[in-house]
């Protein structure tokens, strides 16, 4: 008796509450909802950046990269062939480009795959406005990661190993657009990769090898002209070569152009190639991310249950 009475009473309460809520929704303010979700995205991004900075393991990973670049730059005493530019400057510029490349194509896919597997993506899918907020937050975190490392690398380079910095406003401007466009070229691509890779363990193996290959062949650590022509041709398809060239254009004096295969910085070509990769990345990432979010219905555990269900039904 008591149970049914309680149920009836609560039922009425809920019904009343539902009515008011439906009224509020009838006045539908999708723009208010959109704003709310954007705000949630920014809040999420800010919190994740804070978590990242407090995580010693992740921070030491970034610092490690920077230290390797600095040591390499500090110990190279040769000049870039055909110029008076220290080899260390070319290496630092190359590493700066590579670190951006790594944030977009290694860190981002890894984070996506891990969070997919843990169920974060599923939780956000179950939350109104969750997926847009997630993407906004991830973009924020990646941009913070990329520029944090870049500032650290160039700042420490300039202080400790006499590394290069842009000499004038034009140089800073070039650095800004090359790095921004470079990130735009690799981040959607990284998101697309993160949407299709199976799990965090395999993900690293899948991306690490090609990324290392490009690091060596894109003129990031060795002068591009010193590489065999075939290698140059292949590397020129991928964004890293152009990102590195763009960062060199921003950091190195014009005399360094002599070491470039075209004898110039080819800024328009850099802009075109990176834009093309950005467009391609978005075209791939949007459907793949959508598919990944849609398929995120149950985790592994549910999947196991489904298989158990299948064999049970088939038996």
């Amino acid at each position: 008796m008591t149970t049914s009475e309680t149920t009836n009473r609560t039922t009425t309460q809920t019904a009343a509450r539902t009515t008011t809520r439906t009224d509020a929704q009838a006045g539908a303010r999708p723009r208010a909802a959109g704003l709310r979700h954007m705000r949630a995205g920014f809040q999420r991004g800010a919190i994740e950046v804070r978590h990242l900075m407090r995580n010693p393991k992740e921070m030491s990973g970034f610092l490690g990269n920077v230290v390797v670049a600095l040591v390499l730059a500090g110990t190279l005493s040769k000049k870039v062939p055909g110029t008076h530019i220290p080899m260390g400057h070319l290496t630092l510029a190359g590493f700066a480009a590579y670190l951006l490349f790594q944030v977009g194509l290694i860190n981002l896919p890894q984070v996506l795959v891990t969070e997919r597997e843990e169920g974060a993506l599923l939780r956000l899918r179950a939350t109104p406005g969750g997926i847009p907020a997630y993407l906004v937050a991830k973009a924020m975190v990646m941009v913070a990661m990329a520029y944090g490392t870049l500032i650290l690398l160039l700042g420490a380079g300039a202080l400790l190993v006499d590394g290069p910095l842009p000499r004038d406003a034009a140089g800073w401007l070039t650095l800004l657009w090359v790095t921004a466009l470079g990130l735009l070229a690799v981040m959607p691509l990284g998101a697309a990769i993160g949407a299709v890779l199976p799990n965090p363990r395999e993900a690293l193996a899948f991306i690490m090898l090609p990324a290392m290959g490009l690091l060596v062949t894109s003129g990031a650590v060795f002068p591009f002209s010193s590489l065999p022509v075939v290698v140059q041709k292949i590397a020129a398809v991928f964004p890293l070569k152009w990102m590195a060239q763009g960062v060199r254009a921003a950091l190195l004096p014009d005399a360094a152009r002599a070491a470039e295969p075209a004898g110039s910085w080819e800024l328009p070509t850099i802009a075109m190639v990176l834009s093309a990769w950005a467009v391609l990345g978005f075209l791939l990432a949007i459907p793949l991310l959508r598919r990944a979010a849609r398929r995120e219905s149950g985790s592994r555990l549910t999947e196991r249950h489904r298989k158990a269900g299948l064999s049970g039904a088939a038996a």
Partner: peptide
Amino acid sequence: LQSWRDHRRWRGGELLAHFATYYP
């Protein structure tokens, strides 16, 4: 769901306050 183990770095209160911001 039975399988969630996400947001491990977040503090419980922080996570809850964050998810509150998604709702009207």
